[in-house]
Every structure is written in structure tokens, then in C-alpha cells.
Computed example of a mutant assay.
Amino acid sequence: MLKTILAVAAAGIIAGASYLVAGPNAAAAEFILYKTPGCGCCESYADYLRDNDFTVTVRPTHELTFMSREAGIPDILQGCHLAFIDNYVVSGHVSVGIINRILSERPDIKGVTLPGMPTGSPGMSGIKAGPFVIWEISESQPKVFAVE
């Protein structure tokens, strides 16, 4: 009986430690992605997220700029689509690595943005020409969240 109790306790400890190391399961969170109707790179980005085990619902809109402003993203930092996941906003072609970091660390920010449509970013064709600067969106002035 004692061996059974110890085995169950050990399994619980290992499972808990695995969760802490790996972070939350990305598939547990669902993206709602807003895009301009007909935008192909936004569809490619949605496929990229799906390929990385996220659930994605795509919603076409002609209100993307207004929605991005409402989410706190200055015009100069807006990406080509806007997504929401687990109370965070993700604007543009942000990598899954950054998204998983946010979901595991839970920073006190509104979200992140990769402005424009950088060549070679997730969902965009071409070869990456330089580092991608991902901006943090918060109540204060935007600042660099990460460089990839």
C-alpha cells in the first residue's frame, strides 16, 4: 500500500514539474484572428498557428485599424491582422515562441505586436532579412518585448 501511495505521489510530482517546465498547453487556448477579407498572408499565419497546435477562428473585418487602436496598438505599430488569445492581443506575424512565452510567463501587458508584414516572418513568404522587433503593448508607452 505504501509503495502505491509513493508511486502515485511521485507521478503527481513529475506531472506538475513537467507542466512548470513546458508551460501551459498552447492547444488549450483559442485564437480569434481578425483580418482584412481576402488577405492571403493572414490565412497563412492562421495555418502556421494551427500547425503549432493552436485552435484558430478567422473572422474577416473591414474595421481592423479601429479594432487595433481599441486594443491599444498605435497606428505605427499595427500588424496586418489582429488576434486575441487568453486575454492577450497579438498583432501581426508574431512567432509561436513569443506567444508561448506570454502564455507561460503571464506578463502584465495587453499583448505584443510585430508591425507591418516582415518578409520571412511566420505566414509570410521570403527569407528573413534581419531581426524582428516585437513590441509590448501596455498601459504605458510601447517598448521592445523581444528581438528574434
Rank of each mutant, 00 (worst) to 15 (best):
G23A: 08
T113H: 12
A27E: 13
A26V: 15
S125A: 13
D53W: 02
L6E: 07
S18L: 12
S44F: 02
H62M: 07
T57Q: 13
I85H: 09
A7I: 04
K35S: 14
P118Y: 10
K3Q: 09
Y45V: 00
G23L: 07
S91V: 08
P37F: 11
K110V: 01
R106H: 13
P74I: 07
I127K: 15
G111V: 02
I73S: 07
G92Y: 10
G72I: 04
S104L: 00
C80G: 06
N100E: 15
S140L: 07
T119Y: 04
A17D: 00
A29D: 09
R101E: 15
P122W: 08
V90M: 06
G97H: 10
M124S: 07
F84L: 05
T55P: 00
I13A: 15
T57H: 05
S125P: 04
M117W: 07
S95D: 13
R50Q: 14
L103Y: 03
P37T: 10
V89H: 03
G12F: 13
A10I: 13
H62S: 10
T4R: 11
P122H: 05
T61K: 10
F66C: 00
K143H: 15
A83I: 06
Y45G: 01
Q141F: 08
S18N: 03
P24T: 10
E148N: 10
A26Y: 03
D86I: 00
S104F: 02
P24I: 03
V21W: 08
P118A: 08
K128S: 04
D53H: 11
S121M: 09
L6V: 05
D86M: 00
I98R: 05
F84K: 13
A71E: 04
K110S: 11
L64T: 15
I98T: 15
Y19K: 12
S18G: 07
Q141T: 14
A10H: 01
W135M: 00
T113F: 12
I127S: 13
S140Q: 14
G23H: 06
Q141K: 14
D108I: 08
V56D: 08
G116Q: 05
F84C: 02
I76Y: 05
M1R: 07
F66P: 00
S18D: 01
I14C: 02
M117V: 08
P24F: 00
V133Q: 09
P37S: 13
S68Q: 15
E30S: 14
P118I: 05
R69K: 12
G126T: 10
F84A: 05
T57K: 14
N52E: 03
P37C: 12
P115D: 05
D86H: 04
K143Q: 15
S44Y: 09
E63R: 13
S121W: 11
P118W: 10
I76G: 00
G40C: 02
L20H: 06
L103Q: 02
G130P: 10
F54T: 11
Y19R: 12
I134M: 04
A7T: 07
H81W: 06
S104M: 09
